[in-house]
């Protein structure tokens, strides 16, 4: 069986020479919900961008056994969907419906198939009634759900989330946890919120200074007080 994500000795430096990722080796199986936890500036977001092919360094990245290269970017986009940190960056079309339809149309689906994908995605995140709304008419929680719908509508096998719980209150965060747990795809979530991580994930990967310093079952990693404290984190 192929791995959903396989990263082999991947390193990346920012243009100023600072090492962002250093010798990353990571394999994630299909159907898993994995959290990348680590302090600010650890390299979590860069690692997510590397998986999607937006950051090119040394080493190899495979998505569902397809090597990430500029020549097959289109194929990678259909396998792996990215949910950005800020929903306002993700929702750029005049209406929510058009935003959710943006990906399926780019995949080459016909209008009828696109309609199906959009309606299913909106139903899945509970925003069917908001389809004709402009994104700036939505609340923070709705924007987050809408951003997820824009990715879910493309039916990718893997979805990455960069700090999806940012700026959400307790109720919206719980709604998000329910929504993420209802998704059948492989989820890779970068977060600093340990309670959120513990509620969502079955596996945790600790990233610090551009390296993976711990990897294992979420219950073991996230509740290891000594490990968490050593990397500027806390237990849930």
């Amino acid at each position: 069986m192929t791995a959903a994500v396989k990263i082999q000795d991947f390193s990346y430096r920012y243009p100023d020479g600072t090492a962002a990722l250093d010798g990353i080796c990571l394999t994630i199986d299909h159907g898993r919900r994995v959290v990348l936890v680590g302090p600010n500036g650890a390299g979590k977001s860069t690692l997510l961008l590397a998986m999607a092919g937006f950051v090119r360094g040394t080493g190899k990245v495979f998505i569902d056994d397809v090597e990430v290269r500029s020549s097959n970017a289109g194929k990678i986009r259909m396998l792996l969907g990215c949910c950005m940190e800020e929903p306002d960056d993700q929702l750029f079309m005049p209406t929510l419906y058009e935003d959710v339809a943006f990906g399926p149309l780019n995949m080459g689906l016909n209008p009828e198939e696109t309609k199906q994908h959009v309606e299913n995605a909106l139903r899945q995140v509970g925003l069917e009634a908001m389809a004709r709304k402009a994104p700036h008419h939505l609340s923070a929680g709705q924007k987050r759900a809408a951003a997820i719908a824009t990715v879910v509508s493309m039916s990718p096998k893997i979805i990455t989330f960069d700090e999806p719980d940012g700026n959400l209150d307790c109720r919206n965060r719980n709604n998000l946890v329910r929504l993420l747990r209802s998704l059948s795809q492989t989820l890779i979530i970068a977060t600093c919120n340990m309670r959120f991580a513990a509620a969502v994930a079955d596996r945790a990967v600790v990233v610090d200074n551009g390296r993976i310093v711990a990897d294992g079952p979420a219950a073991d990693i996230l509740y290891n007080a000594e490990l968490m404290a050593a990397h500027g984190l806390e237990t849930p």
């Binding site: 937006f54 986009r77 969907g81 990215c82 950005m84 960056d89 750029f92 780019n106 493309m154």
Partner: peptide, 8 residues
């Protein structure tokens, strides 16, 4: 990036 990520 968000647009490219969705196949633009």
């Amino acid at each position: 990036i968000a647009m490219q990520a969705r196949g633009f």
